[in-house]
Structures are given as structure tokens and as C-alpha cells.
Design a protein around this nucleic acid. Sequence first.
RNA 1: GCUCGUGUAGCUCAGUGGUAGAGCACUUCAUUGGUAAUGAAGAGGUCGGCAGUUCAAUCCUGCCCACGAGCACCA
Length: 651
Amino acid sequence: MIRITLPDSSVKEFNAASVDGDAIAASIGEGLRKAAIAMTVDGKLVDLKTPITKDAAVSLITARSDDGVEIIRHSTAHILAQAVKELYPDAQITIGPVIDDGFYYDVSFKKAISDTDLAAIEKRMEEVVSRDLPITREVWNRDDAVKFFKAQGEAYKAEIIGDLPATEVISVYRQGDFVDLCRGPHLPSTGKAGVFKLLKIAGAYWRGNSDNEMLTRIYGTAWADKKDLKAYLTRLEEAEKRDHRKLGRELDLFHLQEEAPGQVFWHHKGWTLFLGLQEYIRSKLAKHDYQEVNTPQLIDSVLYKKSGHWEKFGTENMFIVKDEEKERTYAMKPMNCPCHIQIFNQATKSYRELPLRMSEFGTCMRNEATGARHGIMRVTSMTQDDAHIFCTQEQIEGEVVKLCNLIKEIYNEFGFTDMFVKFSDRPEMRVGSDTVWDHAEAALRNACEAAKLPWKLNPGEGAFYGPKLEFVLRDAIGRDWQCGTVQLDFNLPVRLEAFYVDEHGEKKNPVMIHRALLGSLERFTGILIENFAGNFPLWLAPTQLVFSGITDKQNDHVKELVAQFKAAGIRVQGDFRNEKINYKIREHSHQKVPYIGVIGDKEIADGTVTVRRFGSNNQTTMTVTAFLAQLQDEIRTRALPQPVTGAENAA
RNA sequence: GCUCGUGUAGCUCAGUGGUAGAGCACUUCAUUGGUAAUGAAGAGGUCGGCAGUUCAAUCCUGCCCACGAGCACCA
């Protein structure tokens, strides 16, 4: 007798030596028996067919749950692998994990395939699904498994098994003739999958190491039903519409061109955004006692040899300028820190001057790997809202807490909600004693806790000179970008001989905190464009308001209004073109101008303006004075825009 | 840097081994129109660059550059 407790606390009794999920589901109802794809037994996720031999708490999993969808994706990855092996028998399969919204499988093909081959693979996958092959789990002996996969010509699989810890149970899943190493769990049969789509192919290094062979990664997505798949594909399309490169062109913000790879040609509107961000950050700097400085672009390599950057990044990643005549070698500055230390070192510093916070909107140039550049998110020439805080060991924690709070405050003001913090602790190769590292890591951790920032550990990924926090934001299509950062540095002040005199008259090296709030202004602008889909908050919007008359009869009055609002500090334009008001509304709406003010004879007579706010189809007539006050209030409070509704507005 | 792909008018895209088209934008003219496209006419391109094959290349081949997706990298 086996007693199975279900999630609703009811108990089913089975008169047998063992029972499986299929039987449990069947005892509840035929519908559930068909829908069940896996189960948890005492909280552990297992295959539906796993025999249960003693009393247990069981919860059946269907495609309706997150676990269910994950299993579907995982099994679909196996179906992909099977289809690939059937179509390309000499291909070797490697790993095929589940990722956000889908899965991928890395394959080593003898002959390269391209995305046009995906259709055929997808078709074969559908055949595998229609065969409805039972998927069964087997536990194998390690040596047999290695031998089996070697015999199959699957060298990568054999390598994976060989590297599994001795304690790991080697399980394989069989579906028809296809056998794959896998921890599971999986669907009971291939017929339970079926709502999927292969999306793209790309290269990926075996085991993520660029010294290894490059495999072909096939990306796919899989869902519980067609509706979910369609919703996902629609979501992808919508995300493409907010791509900052597309909006950058459409809204006349910036452009990039071949002659200056990775460097932004900021058009007036984009530059207005950029300057708006800079002014915003300056207002924060003033409140938090920073000294803004500015340092040279082109610096003798001697300085970078001393700082250690030359050795690490040198000619590969720095732009070198040679002055043949004077026999000097310069580098475009790739970061600001060595320069800031030069300013720090210009006069003997007292402990009384610490913490000393030095900031710069420094333009840095980095010769990035060609494949790394991406729109304005990853550029060759970038402007950081950079600062270095020179402080004592004791001051670290206080400073980091302040920084975490400040960054959190700033991101909140932009309305970012899904920001997360990566905390990278000590790497194997590092400078500084363990005591110093203990202290530094604790300071960062405590600061996160104090600022109530959720963080995840990125073990061993700290810089060799100190641990760091990275503040990560997500773009329209779900890619993560590091924006703000807080890094502790015990190394550079020593190498570049920065000192302060402590209260006992002794010379000491300060600790340096590298920090950026927005990170690269180019990247942050890109993130903003995507996040707001070009519908910027009024305080940032390049053009805040457009006035237009109904006909050219009102032009003189409109000119006066433009002058009045301009004088009041509003970024306003008049539209005097010989076009109908419908045409102008349409065009300025496409440009996502926050306010359109329309003037007809009625408005002139009443001293009013008829206002249309972007994102709404309503019009409100109000006095000119009230309108100006409303705008100024919205700007002053840095109000976030209301979400745009309606199909027409979303276009 | 690596894998696969892309590059035709300002933008979005057709197209062909015999030196090119559409829509929008632009210019001109007419129109004075109350909240998402008024009409007509005109102008606009070394088909990413260099080399090769060919009587002939935007199209085929090679190399280079840039861009895209991803991997690696990211001081």
C-alpha cells in the first residue's frame, strides 16, 4: 500500500509495490492523465514514469506551470538534436540547455550550415514529434557511457561524462534510436512537445573558451501552446521597434558611419538628450561634494606602463599615436584613473582632505574587438560619468553605502525597475592581502544590504586590484548591459605613488574607489531610448513642445508664443509649414514630441491653446499661462511619461 | 578575434550577366485645411571598396571594410 498525498492534502492509496505519475494522474481523471508531463515527489522534480515505492507527497506538473514549460523546452532541445543527427549523421552534438524563453543546442557540423537550413531541421523535428516516441530514462555505468558515446562518434559527450564528478549518477534519455546524456527530467514522449520554432543560428565556443573549436549554436523557442508562442513572437517584434539604432535614426538623434566605427555622430536632438543627462548628473555631484575635473586625451605611454595598463591592454586594445620626430609614443586615454591620480599628486594631501571625490565626464577610447561593437551601447569612443574617490580603509564602507544609495536613487528616477547588481569577489590572481580583501568585500556586501539592493554573486570575477559591484540594466530584447559600477582599488594608488599624510604624520597610500553612476553616457542613452521607446520624460525630451496654427493666418501669434515659451526655458518649435493640421499632428506624433499646442482664431481671441499630449488622443483647451505652468511643473518634478496606449500611438 | 548572414536613392525595400526601379522623405507650384497622410510636377543612385573571370559585372569569384545575430572580450 502506497499513500500519495496530493497538493490539496487529499490522499490516494495504491495497492501495488510501486506507482508512477501516470497512474496517479489517471486515478484523478483522464484529462489530467493526458496533461501531466512530469511530477514532483517530495519536492523533487522527476519524470512522470519514475516509480514511487513508498508514501510520498506528489504534485503533477502540466504545461501550465513554469516547471512544465521548462521541461517542454528541454525535451524540444533533445528533439532538435535527434533531428540534426538524422539529417546530418556525421554531426556531433554537445550540450543543449534551456534558456530564458527557449533553448539552444550546440552542434559540431562537418560542413557549415546556415539559417536557410533551419526550415528543414524544423520539419524533421515535427516528424519526430508526430512519431510520439516514448522518452525513457536509463542509468548507466560511467565507463559504458563513455564507451557508448565514443563508439557513436560523439567525442564531446564522452568528454562531458569523463569530467562529471565521480558522485554524479550518469543518466541517459532514449527516444527511439536517439540517446542523449541528460540529467532530466523529460516529457513522457516526443508527442507532448510540438509548439516550437527555431529562431537563429550563431557560433559558440566549446565550453565557452575561445581557444576551443567554434560550434554551431541553434536557438529555438518552445511553449505550452500556440497562443503563448505567438505572444512571444509578437513580443520580439515589438522589442525590435524600440531598438535604439532604429529610433536613433527615426527620431534624428544620432547616426554612425563606416568612417568612424564605434563613434557616435550626435545630431542636435540626441545631443540634447546627452547634455540633459550630463546636467542631471552634475546636479547630483554638487549635492554629494564632488570636484569636477578634466584631463588630457593623448598621453605618453610611459604613464600607462607605470600604471600597468600598457602590459595588460597595450597595443591590442589601446589606440596608439606615434610621434616619429620626437620619438614618443602616445595612447588615447582608455580610462581616466591614471590622470586623476596625477591631479591628486599635484600637492601633498592631508588625511583631512579625504575622502576626496574627483569626477570627470571623460571621453575614453578603446579599440574593442570588431565583433563587440553594438550601436551606441558598446562603442569605441565613450563618455563615462566617471569619478574616483580617494579615501582611507576606514572610509570605504561609508563611501560605498552612499554610492549604492545614490545609484539606486538615480535609477529609480528614470523608472528602471528590473536593475540588478552583480557582486564580483576576489579572483585567483590578485594584489593585496586577504585581510584587505575581507574588509573590502564585506564593505561592498554591507553597502548592498544597507541600500536594500538585491545582488548576485559573480564568484572570482573581481578585478585583480579589488572587488566590484556592477549595476546591470536590460535592453529591449533582454540583453544585459553593465551601466553603473563601484570598484575598489588597492593597486593603482601604490603603482602611481599617490599618498596622503595621516594624523601621525606618516605617508600612506589612499584606497581608490572607481565609480560610474550611469556608466557610459552613450550606453545609458541607448538604454533610455529603448526603455522609453523614444517617448522620453518631458525634462529629457529633445523637443518638448511644438506650436502650430490651424492656417498661416495665426502664424504671427504662434511666433509670439514660441518666443514666450523659449524665454521660459522650454525647448519649443513652431511649425509654420504649409501643411494641414492633420499632417502636422501625424508627423510630430511620429517624432514622439510630448506636447503639441494648436492655435486657431478661437484660441487667439481667448488667450488659450489647445493641447494634445503624446500618448493620448484627447485635446484640452487651457489658458496659455496655465499651460506654461503645467509644463514647468512636469519638468521640475522630472515626471515619467504615462505609458502610450492605442495602436496608432504605438506605431 | 571567431561562426553564420547582410550591404541597391536620405529612409524602407524590389530587381537583373547587357551600366537600375517603387513608396515615403526632398524641391517647385496649386491649395488656407480644427487634431495621425491635400493634389500635381520635378530632382535624386560609381548598386560598400579593391582586384579577378567575361565581349560585357550591381549580379559570378577572391580579398578588404562596415553592419546584424550570437560566442569570446569589456581596464
